[in-house]
């Protein structure tokens, strides 16, 4: 049995509710660390940063599920909704820490959102994610039909904006945020490549039939 099979077998044993539970508890644990002073000398910044990074990681993980299956055969598709919902939860927690613990002042919050590009970009990413979180239930999938798939493509611009937001937060060009962006762009790039490939595969037979030798 190869590594891929091992991973698939192991993944089958993980209940989806377990992923939800771990994901829900993780920010609570970080918050506990922050309150108890175990997360660094500037706990608000550390918490904000950790949650934002967690959101990006979950987003990347969610985007990686399809290529993982398609390229190497690792099948994690049944976790995808949980990962998506948790991404929104992490990003909401990140936003909440920024609002309540960091900026605090209501008038400053609004000023920051309009005046500061990196906040604007981050907010845009969050807003794009919101309808995805709202429609991440079976009823919405049924009701929206093919439009559901279309709507959920919003995750692509949202991911790109999230990556840009992280780069813009840094005082200089920081390697870590650039690596995140590189991963996001390759996951999006793969989708472009894959859809073109499928398009060509669909086109080929027609061309052949139109041109009988």
């Amino acid at each position: 049995m190869g590594v891929v099979d091992h991973i698939n077998t192991a993944a089958r044993k993980v209940p989806v509710w377990g992923v939800y539970a771990a994901g829900l508890l993780w920010p609570a644990w970080l918050f506990y660390l922050a309150v108890s002073g175990a997360i660094g000398i500037d706990p608000v910044k550390s918490l904000e940063h950790e949650l934002g990074e967690l959101g990006l990681q979950a987003l990347i993980f969610g985007l990686a599920i399809t290529p993982l299956r398609s390229i190497i055969g690792i099948n994690l598709i049944r976790f995808r909704r949980a990962i998506g919902v948790l991404t929104f939860y992490f990003v909401s927690a990140h936003l909440l820490v920024w609002l309540v613990l960091d900026v605090q002042i209501l008038s400053e919050i609004w000023k920051d959102i309009v005046k500061r590009p990196y906040i604007t970009v981050g907010m845009a990413a969050f807003i794009l994610m919101t309808p995805l979180a709202i429609t991440s239930n079976n009823m919405s999938v049924r009701k929206l039909g093919p439009r559901w798939r279309k709507l959920h493509k919003l995750v692509y611009p949202s991911a790109a904006l999230g990556g840009i937001h992280y780069i813009m937060v840094g005082k200089t060009w920081e390697l870590e945020s650039l690596l995140y962006m590189a991963v996001i762009l390759s996951l999006l790039g793969w989708r472009v490549y894959d859809s073109r490939r499928k398009q060509r595969a669909r086109d080929l037979p027609t061309r052949d039939s139109a041109n009988p030798a």
């Binding site: 922050a34 500037d42 706990p43 002042i105 400053e108 920051d112 500061r116 990196y118 813009m168």
Partner: peptide
Amino acid sequence: PRWSQATERTIGGGVFAKR
């Protein structure tokens, strides 16, 4: 250009420190 300088977070005040 990327953030306001009107207020500051005082280091050492903990999670709930007022700006």
